Amino acid sequence: MLTRRHEPPLDPKVLEEAAEWLMRLSERDLSDSERAEWECWRASSPERGRAWSRAQVLQGKLGGLPRSLAMSALDRPSSPERRAALGKLALLLAVVPASWGSWKLAQSQQWSADYHTSVGERRELTLADGSHLTLNTDTAIDVLFDTQQRLIQVREGEILVQTAPDASPQGRPFLVSTREGRMQALGTRFTVRQLPSRTQLAVLEGAVRIELANARQAAPLIVNAGQRTDFSSLAFGPLTPTDRNVGAWTQGMLMADKMRLADFVAELARYRRGFVRCDPAIAELRVSGAFPINDTQRTLNMLVQTYPVLVTGHLSGYWVTLSPA
């Protein structure tokens, strides 16, 4: 018998059907004929049975639908708001049981942060000391300036930092913290990206000093211009040369140089709402070129025109699959 971990992914169409039934059941009582139709749908195939089991797990975790989705359920069946809500709900069903915790965390990180960007958005900030920040897609930060320090706390996402000299008599250090550690800018320009369990740092100018969060006894690491590293809360990764395209996202571009298609898709998915899946059969296909992140659909079209790739969309574009052409 297969465990959940080894179950094949569910068909997006089936997930959308399950999302529709979950919405209908949450908004009102079904008539006898509708309930019979629902029971028939649920029992008509093992895959639909699996999808509904996930719907029940999700409903149990939520105690009902999130308010943002529940309100959309009341719209007309053909309304854009309801279709968008269906897509979001189907995506939650695709990754149950981890989905609800991740959904709540993402909402909390975004809306309680001092500054944030939504998926596909970039934002530029000039801070009180004259330092400049650029926030990449789906990013949340806090800015904490006092008499002792200038601190940027990265909750999620990625930033580009251009520091300015501190004009205060104290000469306050410029710091960037993540879950894994704290970085001190030594007159510099650099990028920081928060990953699920690691931090990535790339230094473009100057240098950055890193202290690990849970290994205070470890000697700090100095990363100089032209170098990059990643680190956990306990250990530093190796120093490697900085990718010359590391800041291309600030110009609205995703640069690829013989990049695995699977890795390319993972990067592109950061800028697109929904779910983008790469068929393992073409995961090792190498991709090169400059691709716009402001228009991810255009980028997908460019892939189709250049490589033996077929792009299929479901759930009103919320679910996209790349497969062999």
Rank of each mutant, 00 (worst) to 15 (best):
T296N: 06
D114I: 01
R216P: 05
A51F: 08
M23G: 06
S232W: 03
R82P: 11
W319T: 07
R76T: 15
T178S: 13
G157F: 05
L86V: 07
N301W: 00
R67G: 02
S118H: 15
T312Q: 10
G60T: 05
A85Y: 09
M253I: 04
L201H: 13
P308I: 10
Y115S: 11
W100A: 08
L62T: 14
S102H: 11
S68C: 10
P220W: 02
Q200E: 14
G289M: 05
H132T: 09
R273Q: 15
Q149H: 02
D29K: 02
R82D: 14
A281M: 01
T306A: 15
R28T: 09
M302Q: 04
P80W: 10
G181D: 01
F275A: 03
A70N: 11
L92P: 00
R209D: 15
L2G: 05
L239A: 10
L58V: 04
P9C: 14
A85I: 04
N214Q: 15
Q148M: 14
V176R: 06
P165D: 12
G247Y: 00
V176A: 05
L195G: 11
R272Q: 12
R193A: 08
R48N: 14
L151W: 02
W100P: 09
G289I: 12
R155M: 06
A215D: 14
C278W: 00
R150C: 07
L15V: 03
R193I: 00
W111M: 13
Q200D: 12
T321M: 05
Q297P: 00
A140L: 02
R198E: 14
R50I: 02
R123M: 12
R216V: 07
F231S: 04
C40T: 11
G289N: 05
A202Q: 10
N136C: 08
P46N: 03
S232P: 06
R209P: 15
Q107C: 01
E180S: 07
G157A: 03
Y271R: 08
G87Y: 12
M71Y: 04
E47Y: 02
R193F: 01
E180Y: 06
